[in-house]
Nucleic acid binder design. Structure first.
Lengths: 153, 153
DNA sequence: ATAATTCGAAACTTCATAAGTTACGAAATA
DNA sequence: TATTTCGTAACTTATGAAGTTTCGAATTAT
């Protein structure tokens, strides 16, 4: 099953936004992600609603951070892109008449709910700025100056 | 995103198999699941390889349990259907050049791996017979005789 | 004013893959 | 020999993220 990459992509974008001192256009961002501007606008629209980014139209416009990365968790970004379904695994039928299938659903739901809760708890514990710090450490250990962009940016 | 219901369905099937004293045909099972015999055979083929069920061809043939439900965990069944992808969420790129994206991937992978490990640990702790016992308790509390099949079976 | 830039958004098409379907051969029994 | 049932290949369908096209609206430059 194909993966939902919206959280992953938006984190990537947010980190690059902080490096820039100017608005980034959907065009630029699309080039960075290997996709196209309309998709970027569609996905960033969710982050704008949450105040995580702001957009401006016209000459010199584009996308910028709406608040510091230290004030966003991965959970915030996950919710901003629409709280997409976590699991590819699922129940065959959500409301079965069959008692046997109800027992199956109860057990699977319990396990899936626990795993989802753990995942979202972890997401809530990680600030986007933590990823920036991790990136800075990687860059330093490779002797790369901070602020340098990556190859595909 | 559409869910992968193979684990859920196969658990349903295994529990019904135990109730029966005779082989169940793919046709019967398909009726129970609301699908068709070829799909049932395709999916049960994985369980046969693990010895969880056996099949026989020809008159009076069909599918039966290959070992007691107490000797199968949900994890066993999950693996038998091909260890399908757990998450719908995923990374945009598995091997990015970009250091920023590498930092994103590291954080997401860590959280996803933890949640997957928890889920599979839970699956390994639950025997299929536990679901049968849960079903029996539900049935009893509703005043239904044990051994009764459910509506769609 | 006029032109250029950039987002906003609607209306599509594409892609991946579990699910579903069709069909026919092989094996077993009646 | 006929019937049943699995085994399997090849194909179609369904779903939703991703991708694309297009045009209007807002903003800035000249």
């Amino acid at each position: 099953m194909r993966h939902d990459g919206r959280l992953s992509r938006m984190l990537h974008v947010l980190l690059h936004m902080e490096e820039q001192q100017r608005p980034m256009t959907s065009e630029e961002i699309a080039g960075m992600l290997g996709t196209n501007p309309a998709l970027v606008r569609r996905t960033l629209a969710g982050l704008r609603e949450g105040g995580y980014v702001v957009s401006e139209r016209g000459h010199g416009g584009g996308w910028m951070l709406g608040k510091p990365l230290a004030e966003m968790t991965l959970r915030d970004v996950y919710d901003a892109v629409g709280s997409p379904e976590v699991f590819a695994l699922g129940l065959a039928d959500d409301q079965p008449q069959c008692l046997v299938e109800q027992a199956v659903n109860t057990a699977l739901r319990q396990s899936l709910d626990e795993a989802r809760a753990l995942l979202l708890r972890r997401f809530a514990e990680i600030r986007v700025s933590d990823l920036r710090d991790d990136f800075a450490a990687r860059a330093a250990s490779l002797g790369i100056m901070p602020g340098m962009s990556c190859a595909d940016a």
